[in-house]
């Protein structure tokens, strides 16, 4: 776990080595950005002289946390750079560091994007949903996508992602979780027929984009992205992350209104289970990180137990209802 006071002079030394300055970089106290748990996020306020001119500049520091959610810096950086190259609003990554000698864990440094990740106004929310839809429309086969696994047919994407998240769960678990194992099989056997292959952000919604005024400035948190079905994103937004903005039925209507993308109730229910499964599996990693002491902060304990179990309960209820319908 990053000790921000210890890391501060190390970050200053790192930026001094990376930036072309007259006499090194001074860094103010690191400001923890209070969103997200997958990475440590900090605002770094740097000051230095360049060609005799005083420069004040902010960067965003994104620090890996011991395998949280089964993701890593390299994949995220590759994805972000690929999306930026495709013209999508993504922060510019300045520096990437994998050497643990610097601050003890991989990290990368982005240009600071001015704006807010808090509740957006109506226009910014509409802009976000529109841009997410645009992400799904990108012809990814003509782009350089960095993903290690590319599904050949849509159902492959479902299987790949179910297996991916099950692997993360099994890495983090102490004991088997029968309801997640059941869900993995259920998801593979009950996938909808109308699947598509698009770019999927994987973690869309409030707090994971920066907006200013009426416009989105940047999509953030790309570590879950992959090729898959766009409804995974819509349900993550409307069924999970976006519930503080409006309830799922309203999201379903809103998405259709803004994008023309209509999601049936059956498809909605399926991807709801999928995302609860994904969330539960990802959250299990926090348990391992907590009990091994890699990050003994209390949010890790909560994510790895109660938060995970609330998702298990949600998905097992839906699966139980599907059994009841079959039995009628």
């Amino acid at each position: 776990m990053l000790n921000v006071e210890v890391a501060r002079p190390q970050i200053a030394a790192y930026l001094s080595a990376k930036l072309s300055t007259d006499d090194g970089v001074e860094v103010g106290p690191l400001e923890r950005i209070t969103i997200g748990h997958s990475r440590g996020m900090f605002r770094v306020n740097a000051s230095y002289r360049q060609g005799g001119e005083a420069v004040e500049r902010s960067f965003a520091l994104r620090v890996e946390q011991a395998g949280m959610f089964g993701t890593n810096t390299l994949d995220e950086v590759r994805t972000m750079r690929s999306m930026r190259a495709a013209g999508f609003p993504v922060a510019n990554i300045r520096f990437v560091e994998f050497d643990p000698a610097v601050i003890g864990t991989p990290f990368f440094v982005m240009d600071w994007v001015e704006g807010s990740s808090g509740p957006p106004n109506d226009a910014a929310l509409r802009d976000y949903v529109t841009k997410l839809h645009e992400l799904h429309q990108i012809d990814w086969r003509k782009k350089e996508v960095p993903f290690a696994r590319i599904p050949s047919v849509p159902i492959d994407a479902v299987h790949q992602q179910v297996d991916r998240w099950m692997d993360v769960h099994r890495w983090g678990r102490v004991l088997p979780e029968p309801l997640l194992e059941e869900a993995a099989t259920w998801l593979k056997r009950n996938a909808p027929d109308d699947l598509h292959l698009t770019l999927v952000h994987g973690d869309p919604g409030p707090l994971n984009f920066i907006h200013k005024g009426d416009e989105v400035q940047a999509f953030t948190d790309w570590e879950f992205s992959h090729i898959g079905d766009p409804n995974e994103d819509w349900l993550f937004l409307g069924g999970m992350r976006g519930r503080g903005v409006m309830e799922p039925p309203q999201w379903r209507e809103y998405i259709a209104d803004v994008t023309g993308h209509v999601i049936t109730k059956e498809t909605w229910a399926y991807w709801d289970v999928f995302n609860q499964f994904k969330g539960a599996c990802a959250n299990t990693s926090a348990l391992r990180i907590f009990i091994t002491g890699a990050n003994p902060a209390p949010n890790m304990a909560a994510i790895g137990t109660a938060l995970k179990l609330s998702m298990v309960q949600h998905l097992s209820t839906i699966i139980g209802m599907s059994y009841a319908r079959e039995g009628e």
Binding site: P298, A306, S316
Partner: peptide, 18 residues
């Protein structure tokens, strides 16, 4: 399902404080 619910209830103080 019942055991998962019981465990969730045990860990609920962490969720409500989250």
């Amino acid at each position: 399902v019942q055991q998962a619910t019981d465990t969730l209830n045990e860990t609920m103080p962490m969720l409500t404080a989250f």
